[in-house]
């Protein structure tokens, strides 16, 4: 390749990298700034970093509690979705039955539903049965968007498992449940793991349901981060430190599944 073209290619790639990473960099670097540096105009690039914002974040019971709440909700909603979703994926991958494709469409179409559509009625129902402001209601609601991903990715994974294994097991008298439990689950672990990571990311990031369905006790991390945005002089350092703490774990998870990112977000429309 001519040197000029190579140079241009390299410059383009660097630009892509810089622009993509910049807001993330700006958040992290702002989280190490003092209020004076944060309010400097024009913004400063070189400054003496401080850990004061992080000290403040981790001393704030509200933030720490919110992160614990987010963890509880994300872990249990993902677990529940995997427990419910893997048998369904097994059935979709291995059996023929009436209405199979309609059922499949129905699972997938949950991906499209706007949270506001369900948030209103679930708020009313939860209020009536006293589930407002509990972990349980968020865990249950989050299943509506995690389950379709689990079903999609695991069906795909289970289809790729060779049938011979199953035949052999059946000849030795294994039941359908044994086949699911002893063959498909263990061999499907890669797909299950990827779908669980997606489930965790999506429920960790969720704001609307959490905003509407919780009050004090079960506020999740995004809700608390949002709540700092009132008042006249905003504590920007603390806000950015909180943002960094929230975003860091999902960023790491996302890097782990980066190869599957497109599949997870499009529900497999593109391989």
């Amino acid at each position: 390749m001519p040197r000029f073209g190579r140079l241009l290619h390299g410059a383009g790639l660097l630009l892509v990298f810089a622009v993509t990473i910049f807001p993330f960099y700006w958040m992290v670097s702002s989280s190490f700034k003092t209020q004076t540096d944060l309010l400097a105009s024009p913004p400063v690039w070189l400054f003496t970093p401080t850990l004061a914002n992080y000290a403040e974040v981790f001393a704030d019971q509200k933030v720490v509690g919110a992160i614990v709440n987010s963890l509880i909700v994300a872990v249990f909603s993902t677990l529940l979705a995997v427990v419910l979703g893997t048998p369904a994926a097994f059935a979709l991958a291995r059996y023929d039955f009436r209405g199979k494709s309609d059922l499949w469409f129905w699972f997938i179409s949950n991906r499209f539903i706007s949270p506001i559509v369900l948030a209103l009625p679930i708020y009313l129902v939860a209020q009536n049965i006293g589930l407002l402001d509990t972990h349980l209601i968020l865990i249950l609601v989050y299943i509506t968007f995690i389950l379709p991903i689990v079903v999609w990715i695991c069906t795909d994974q289970f289809r790729s498992i060779p049938r011979d294994l199953e035949e052999a097991a059946r000849l030795e008298g294994a039941s359908q449940f044994d086949i699911f439990w002893r063959i498909y689950l263990p061999l499907g672990v890669p797909g299950i793991a990827v779908s669980a990571i997606f489930g965790f990311i999506f429920s960790w990031n969720e704001l609307l349901y959490a905003l509407v369905l919780t009050r004090r006790a079960v506020q999740t991390a995004p809700v608390v981060a949002t709540s700092f945005m009132s008042g006249y002089e905003l504590p920007w350092g603390k806000i950015m430190a909180t943002g960094t703490v929230i975003v860091l774990p999902v960023t790491i998870f996302a890097l782990l599944v980066s190869r599957h990112m497109v599949r997870g977000l499009t529900m497999g429309a593109t391989k």
């Binding site: 993509t20 990473i21 807001p23 993330f24 990311i201 960790w204 990031n205 704001l207 991390a221 995004p222 809700v223 981060a225 949002t226 943002g243 929230i246 975003v247 999902v250 960023t251 998870f253 996302a254 890097l255 990112m261 977000l265």
Partner: peptide, 8 residues
């Protein structure tokens, strides 16, 4: 990274 960043 942008795709995973918490929307809030």
């Amino acid at each position: 990274i942008p795709l995973a960043t918490t929307y809030a």
